[in-house]
Structure formats: structure tokens, C-alpha cells
Design a protein around this nucleic acid. Structure first.
Length: 291
DNA sequence: GTTTAGCAGCTTACACGTCA
DNA sequence: TGACGTGTAAGCTGCTAAAC
């Protein structure tokens, strides 16, 4: 019968489609991995890989076999996690995720809450930085899964579209234009406040509406603070001001064209490493979080 | 309890084929 | 021709079961 070790090797090689790379991940020698694959194929008298000097690819039966064993390996990992939780190996219950500055504030609180409810035994760590820094963190295994915007499509990273966020314009509730419906052209006639390097500002310029930018801030909170002081009209992506809108501290302007200026959020993870069971559960939670 | 034989699985060293 | 990826051979290590 195939051993669990052989199944893990098969799964790893199937991800890399390269025995040498898989051997590195498994901390084995390449011949060791190769021989285990051969034993596995001999066990079932089937050929799971087409091998060539350009590399290898899964045969049809190899793909079917992979589909069958993946849930098993995931279940075994869950069992390990559950029944080894009392041993003293460091960080066995630690799950590190990452988020861009914006998404860490807007999306993560709800997602993390749902995930915690499903996995109260897992200690969550949320790392926050720029999207580019988060991509680097995924690549060097500092975080297992991250939510980012502005992907650079770095090597070895898988990007899955998560959600689009509309941009909004907002003012203090006592502003004379509070709640007014207007065009982009009229909007850009007002003094504007946005984040430095804002994609919204770039988009306004592209559309031929050079913005009257009076304040640029590094942090979204600073944008909101400046707007509350009446320095101008604030521009951010929707989720960042939802709470203030709900509390009545700020009011949205009705600018239909703003709805077309969106920021795309992506889930990113490293395709060189097999996702842990908790990471897969986290992705499930994210899927449930989409609307 | 100790020794020994057999086996599985690993490693290193090397061979081979292909490609740029 | 060198780089790269895979397979084979030989030898080492550790585990297990049988023998004493």
C-alpha cells in the first residue's frame, strides 16, 4: 500500500512539476523523491507523470489521483494540528496573514472575526504593510496568505481576484454641497484631499480632469481628519469611510462617475508551497466574505 | 537484555539526454 | 559546451524482528 510519505511526495512534486524543486521543499535528495515516485507508480501499476528532459507533467490518471489524495492530506494535517496542539513545538497554532494598509482596516476585521469563530484554537497574526511589501512577505514565507491591491504579479505568486472597491467623495455633514449630485468635472473644481500616490487622482488625470489637490496625506485617517476640518473634499475608496458615514461624521457626494473608478483587491499566496489546512479554510472564509 | 540479519529509505557520485 | 533535470548504482543509517 502507498505510504503517507509517498502521497506527500506525490502532492509536492505535482505542485512543482519538478523533482528537484520538490526535493528542496521536502528536504530530501532528488533521487530519494524520484525513487519514491517510482515506487508509488509501481504500487498502482500506473504512470502518474509524463517525464521529459524539459520537465514533467501529470497524466490524466495522475491528475485524478491528485484530486483524490488532496482532501486526505488536508484532513491528516487537520488531525495533526488538533491532536498535537498540546505539544510544545513553537508556533504550531500560529497563523500569519497579511493585508495592505487599506484592506487591513476595511476588510480584515470582519474576515478575521468569521475565521476566529470557526477556529478559536488558532492564534491569528495580521501583518500590515504596503501591497508590494506584502507580496514580498508572501514570497519569503513571512505570511502565508495576503490580501492586497495593485499587484505586481511577482514570480511564484498566485493572484486570485477578491473584490472591487468603488471610490467615493465625501465632505463634512455641514458642508453646503453635502449630499449634492455632481459630475467629475464639477467635483474637480473643489479643493481635494487624497492619499499621496492615490489611484483615484491618477484616474481623474487620465480622464482629463486635473484635480485641484490641496492636501496629500500618507494615511487615510489623515485624509478624513483634513476633510472634517473643512479643508476640502476627500477622496478615498469606499470601505475606508463607511464607519464615519454611518456615524454621520462625514457625508458622501453623489458622483455617478466615481463608481467607475475602482480598486481591485486580490488574494495572494506562494505557488511553491502547499497551503496549510488553515490557509485553505481562510480562503473559504474569504469566499464567504465576498458579496 | 544484547546481538545480528534483513529491509527500507536515504545520500553522494555519476551517467545520460536535451537545449540554448 | 555548459547548464539543467532525471535516473541508476553503491554504500550508509536506522528500525525491527528473530535468535541467543
Amino acid at each position: 500500500m502507498a505510504t503517507l510519505h509517498q502521497l506527500k511526495i506525490f502532492e509536492c512534486v505535482s505542485r512543482h512539476l519538478n523533482v528537484t524543486s520538490a526535493a528542496e521543499e521536502l528536504k530530501m535528495s532528488q533521487p530519494g523523491v524520484s525513487s519514491q515516485l517510482k515506487l508509488l507508480e509501481k504500487e498502482y501499476n500506473l504512470r502518474f507523470y509524463d517525464r521529459s528532459n524539459q520537465g514533467m507533467s501529470l497524466t490524466r490518471v495522475g491528475r485524478e489521483f491528485l484530486e483524490e489524495i488532496r482532501p486526505l492530506l488536508r484532513k491528516i494535517e487537520e488531525i495533526d494540528r488538533r491532536f498535537k496542539k498540546n505539544d510544545n513545538r513553537s508556533d504550531s497554532s500560529l497563523f500569519v496573514v497579511g493585508g495592505s494598509n487599506t484592506l487591513s482596516v476595511t476588510v480584515f476585521p470582519e474576515i478575521l472575526g468569521k475565521f476566529r469563530a470557526r477556529h478559536p484554537d488558532i492564534q491569528l497574526v495580521l501583518k500590515t504593510s504596503s501591497s508590494h511589501a506584502m507580496e514580498a512577505s508572501v514570497q519569503n514565507s513571512d505570511v502565508e496568505v495576503a490580501l492586497i491591491t495593485n499587484p505586481t504579479y511577482a514570480d511564484h505568486c498566485i493572484y486570485k481576484p477578491f473584490k472591487d472597491y468603488e471610490s467615493v467623495a465625501f465632505v463634512p455633514p455641514d458642508s453646503p454641497i453635502s449630499g449634492e449630485r455632481m459630475t467629475l468635472e464639477r467635483l474637480t473644481s473643489f479643493p481635494l484631499i487624497a492619499k499621496r500616490g492615490s489611484l483615484i487622482i491618477d484616474e481623474l488625470r487620465k480622464r482629463g480632469y486635473p484635480p485641484n489637490l490641496v492636501v496629500q496625506c500618507d494615511a487615510p485617517d489623515a485624509v478624513k481628519a483634513a476633510v472634517k476640518r473643512g479643508l476640502g473634499v476627500g477622496l478615498l475608496f469606499g470601505g475606508r469611510v463607511a464607519l464615519e458615514i454611518e456615524k454621520g461624521e462625514l457625508r458622501l457626494l453623489d458622483v455617478p462617475e466615481m463608481k467607475e473608478i475602482k480598486i481591485k483587491a486580490f488574494v495572494v499566496y506562494d505557488n511553491r508551497r502547499r497551503l496549510s489546512a488553515r490557509a485553505l479554510d481562510f480562503l473559504d472564509t474569504l469566499s464567504g466574505g465576498r458579496d
